[in-house]
Design a protein around this nucleic acid. Structure first.
Lengths: 122, 122
DNA sequence: AACATTGTAATATATGTATAGTACAAATAT
DNA sequence: ATATTTGTACTATACATATATTACAATGTT
């Protein structure tokens, strides 16, 4: 299970912060395939937001095939299956890295800063 | 001079992304005291946003005494020092890397894949 | 003086975000 | 069967964000 946390100061919409935390939870291994997420109502109470906000986050992740929702049962981490060719994958990785380098750079961070942080995150 | 970069996918308002990049730019030394920023019109064209959006960002930084604006002349970095703590910097870097990781994850890449690619790019 | 460039201000419009409240639909437990 | 728990859907409201457009004010250049 994951501990969610919303920060109103960032300007990032609540539903997007939830999405990000779920995605990162999966990426970091804190959320495992098949695991059940909090219900929309319980998480809404816990985070003191409207249940529609939670529902919106879950919905978007379901569309992205990251979550699986079952009415009456709950919401679960889906098995993520993205099928693209090796060549496409390499191109995509390059794109992602280029974009992130330039974003980091615009905030004054170097590639080494990023690499160090990524290593820490693991 | 700084290279600005807007990312619509983050959900962070444009005007706030600009504010952040100026602040971090000053803190990291990429923007120096007295330096002139792009005019609201030119930056609006460059970033493909409305001039009101740029004006809003500059205005907020002027209120914070970080920028000095002179009608008819331009907008400049004020003498005032921007103090960004090591903790804040790390938070920002962490945010960027988290977003990065989760996007990479959604395409099936590991953190090591990213690090390898970043090193290659350097 | 006339002009161009700069930031500023105002109106109107569209869209996004979040809330409150209500009701319904599907699955499960009793 | 009935009740409970789950996600879903809808309306209404308020505010934030971003755009388009137009005009004005201050400064510097010619």
């Amino acid at each position: 299970m994951i501990k969610f946390r919303l920060d109103p100061k960032t300007g990032i919409p609540f539903y997007r912060q939830i999405i990000d935390q779920i995605k990162f939870g999966i990426a970091s291994g804190n959320l495992k395939t098949g695991e059940q997420l909090p219900t929309v109502r319980s998480l809404a109470v816990e985070l003191k937001v409207n249940l529609n906000t939670i529902a919106k986050a879950y919905k978007e992740l379901e569309i992205q095939n990251i979550l699986e929702t079952h009415q009456g049962t709950g919401t679960f981490i889906n098995e993520n299956k993205v099928k693209i060719s090796a060549r496409e994958k390499e191109e995509k990785l390059k794109d992602i890295c280029s974009e992130f380098s330039s974003i980091a750079y615009s905030y004054g961070f170097s590639v080494d800063d990023i690499i160090d942080q990524l290593k820490k995150q693991q």
